[in-house]
Amino acid sequence: MSKDALPDIKWLSDVEEQDYPAAESYLTILHSRDKVSKMMARFRAAPVVKFKTVDIFRACELPLKSASNAQVKAERKKISKGESLSPILLLRDEMHGKVVIADGYHRMCAVYEVDEETVIPCKII
C-alpha cells in the first residue's frame, strides 16, 4: 500500500470521558487506590501531546495485538469510516524505565497497522 493510499486517521481534541474510568480500573491493579486517584487528577489536567506510534511501542515494551483481535478490528473500522479516535493515556514508569498504556492499547495497535510512523495524541504523566 502506498503512503498516498493510507487512510487519514482523525483524532478528538481531548480524551473521551469514558476512557478515564477504564484507565483507573487498569491502574488500580498496579497501584493503590489513593495513588491512582491522584494519577487520574493529573491525567485530567495534563495537556495533550504527540508521539510517534513506533516510539510509544518501544517505550511500553508491549507486543503488537493481532489484526484479528476484536477490539483492534473495531478501532480499524472506526479509522476506515473516518471516525475520530480518542487520545491515549500514558503513565511514565520511571522505576522500570518504560511507559504504561493506561488506556488506548487497542487504538494504538490499530493505528500501528495503518502506519507505524503515525503521530498519536496522548496525555502522559
Rank of each mutant, 00 (worst) to 15 (best):
I29T: 15
S37M: 12
S32F: 15
S25W: 07
C60N: 15
E24P: 06
K52N: 02
L85R: 02
L89H: 02
E117Q: 15
L90N: 00
R76W: 08
S68I: 05
A22T: 10
A46F: 06
A5T: 09
V100F: 07
Y112C: 08
R58F: 07
K123I: 02
I101E: 06
Y20A: 11
K3E: 13
P63H: 12
L62G: 03
D4Y: 13
E117Y: 14
S37Q: 15
L30E: 10
I88L: 15
F51M: 08
A59D: 09
D4K: 14
A110D: 05
K81C: 07
K50E: 09
K35I: 11
M95W: 08
D115G: 01
I124N: 06
H106S: 13
K50I: 01
I101P: 04
S13F: 03
A46I: 06
A74N: 05
E117S: 15
L64M: 12
E24R: 13
E75W: 02
K50M: 02
M108I: 00
E83Y: 13
A102M: 03
A45R: 14
L91N: 00
M108P: 00
I101F: 06
I88M: 11
V111H: 07
L12P: 06
S66A: 11
I29P: 01
A45Y: 10
L89T: 01
R107T: 05
D55A: 11
K98I: 00
V72N: 11
I29A: 13
V48C: 13
S86C: 05
I101Q: 06
R33Y: 09
F51I: 02
Q71E: 09
A74K: 05
D14H: 11
A22R: 12
E113V: 02
P87R: 08
D55G: 03
C109I: 02
A23H: 14
V119F: 06
I125A: 03
W11D: 01
L12G: 04
D8N: 02
R33D: 10
C122L: 11
R107C: 03
E75G: 01
R92K: 10
E117R: 15
C122M: 12
S68D: 07
E17W: 00
P7D: 03
V72G: 11
H106E: 12
K77D: 12
P47Y: 01
L30C: 07
H106R: 11
K38W: 13
P47A: 09
E117V: 09
T28Q: 12
K123P: 01
P7H: 04
C122Y: 06
I101G: 05
Y26N: 00
K50D: 01
L30Y: 12
